[in-house]
Nucleic acid binder design. Structure first.
Lengths: 356, 356
DNA sequence: GGTCAAGTGTAGATTGATCTACATCCAACG
DNA sequence: CGTTGGATGTAGATCAATCTACACTTGACC
């Protein structure tokens, strides 16, 4: 019991508290859970025993029978500010609910399955996932064991909920904007889908298909460039594109991280920023930054995170049929497509211009 | 057992596997843990039962007696790219070790204690913390129950390890650089410490004290501006500073997030970027971005994360006395202090210039 | 005084894994 | 033929909580 380095103390358990308070462990459990059948006198005694021992229930033991009061959040990687924005929204919504969030980044691995499984192994009460590439059938099977909300992908699920952005509307709004500015040679930089892109319902595949349709409708030549989700790869792709003999007048990137990579390459190659319009999707904080000023589509990541938490908590409490929450995107026009824009008008990071 | 919506299936347990394989639960446990006393024949039978049922051991049950094979990572908030860089380094180091990382952001709450406690409640095998404001005594007490590595703060701990950057050397290198450029009026934008800043051993307090000493030594007038860790507040502070009658010629911010907020305000107020040198600390990816090009101190966040994981795993396995790992910082000179720098020389995000 | 119900508290099963201690088997060897 | 010992598998306790079922107390009411 000495605190020699290497020898760890045993944490006080519920029965330590029970002994000190002179009651049964079950009574302590009731006090902790604020359950029915506790006299004020006993509550008092137990509470003071808890504070005296600095007792905290172990979640592992609790999860064996009851709930863990923990939600799991699986995100592809931490490099994309949009994902952290979603997490922030979720955390804010969770405040005061008694639930705690644990985050499992799935990093290198594309599908996210290992990260999702590890959350399930942890007996979380529910999972929020941003996995563009995990198979829907696989998710349905996992949803048999634990409530799930999937973010971003336009699935048609049976057992889990989804929170999506209207990617068709967002893409159309952006193309409206670019075409209205007179652009005809509009390239699209997007993320290589793991599955068949013509079937995939990931946000990027939907944006890509919408782009293709719209270009065809306008009688314009589509130019599609693929990249990984990482900015370094986006830069390589942009470099290849911008070194071609015919450089597009506008580049519409599938998300802001890619778009900012493009801006970086434009600067690096010494090209005139006014000659190349660059647009993104997401409206991460950095897009509104004075030095960046990126035209993009705001899909309200914080609200997506908050909505996901709400859906998940309701599903945990009462189940019910699968639901789909769709958020309307808003175009934010900034200097990356309209260089003449007065920088003093966009000081706060979030756009004051909106169309569409 | 039907898969009606709302009714969840029971996950297969170790005894389900045991029954199917015709062995005892203890035998299955042995196979899972790769323990001694398993014949090839039995291993074979058990393995195929596991795959047939798609069985995965529940970590909650496992943590009751054994280990959870989970490490907890407490970070202040997700808005600072430097923290996510550290997490990336830790995750990479952890690859293939059999351990999994869960992240608990402590967001609004300054001390991080609730987040740390919630990790401890989860029976993680060890904790990595970035909590500038949690009391050392409190950490020592927590370290009696669970191995801990603290990042950033220059503590003198008994029961936990630390990974720090040599903040004195880093600050001196930056001031060397600014003074060599001829700056005399150098302001310091830093984060308001929760505790007494003259005693605090947080990175920001150390940088602040080093700045004060150096300015005194050079016979220069210090100018200190406080902010919260968030960029919006940094912008407000920068606005106040840059609207004064006498504007400093250089602003040394306590970290890159603050510095980028300053750059944003310089652009917003229409000031000449060449007239105001801005420097940061951390060398986040964004600092090397073509549009930003921020002079800063690289403190190798990924390596800090990796070192923290190594220390923690060793402590989990073998205990031993407290250890301190110190990383040498490197100055990265970019256009925010030397505007004449050729942009083509710093294309890759990571500085190619280094002094100090 | 007896019955009933509401209010309090406890005993003991339960959860799913690990871990210790032991039983059994089989081969080798004196 | 008995013994020994390594190899293999199992029984049952254990971890720390929850949860069900029930016992006991108390007061009200007939």
């Amino acid at each position: 019991m000495e605190s020699t380095v290497g020898t760890r103390k045993r944490r006080p358990s519920i029965s330590d508290v029970a002994v000190l308070a002179g009651v049964s462990p079950a009574a302590v459990s009731k006090v902790i859970r604020d359950a029915y059948g506790v006299s004020p006198a006993m509550r008092e005694r137990v509470q003071s025993a808890i504070t005296e021992l600095n007792y905290r229930p172990r979640i592992a033991a609790r999860s064996m029978r009851g709930s863990s009061f923990t939600l799991g959040f699986e995100i592809p990687h931490l490099g994309n500010e949009f994902f952290t924005q979603i997490v922030r929204g979720a955390t804010t919504q969770l405040e005061g609910s008694g639930y705690q969030l644990i985050i499992a980044p799935s990093l290198g691995d594309l599908s996210g399955e290992p990260a999702l499984e590890s959350l399930a192994d942890r007996q979380v009460d529910g999972i929020i996932a941003i996995s563009p590439d995990v198979a829907p059938e696989w998710l349905e099977r996992l949803a048999e064991y634990v409530p799930i909300v999937l973010l971003g992908r336009h699935d048609d699920p049976v057992a889990y909920d989804t929170v999506t952005n209207d990617d068709i509307a967002g893409t159309e709004a952006m193309l409206d904007h670019l075409i209205a500015l007179g652009h005809r040679d509009i390239a699209h930089l997007t993320i290589q889908a793991a599955t068949d892109p013509s079937l995939s319902r990931s946000p990027h595949s939907v944006r890509l298909r919408t782009y293709e349709k719209r270009m065809a409708k306008e009688g314009l030549e589509p130019r599609i460039v693929f990249s990984s989700p990482f900015e370094t790869d986006a830069r390589a792709a942009a470099r290849a594109l911008l070194r071609q003999s015919s450089v597009p007048t506008a580049i519409f990137a599938g998300n802001d991280t890619l778009a900012i990579g493009v801006l970086s390459v434009v600067a690096e190659l010494g090209l005139d920023p006014a000659a190349i319009a660059v647009a993104g999707y997401d409206d991460i904080d950095l897009a509104g930054h004075g030095l960046v000023s990126l035209t993009t589509i705001d899909q309200f990541g914080d609200e997506m995170g908050a909505a996901a938490v709400r859906l998940l908590l309701e599903r945990i409490r009462s189940g019910g049929p699968s639901r789909r929450h769709v958020i309307d995107p808003v175009l934010r026009v900034r200097r990356s497509t309209v260089p003449t824009l007065d920088p003093h008008l966009v000081p706060q990071g979030h756009g004051t211009f909106s169309e569409g």
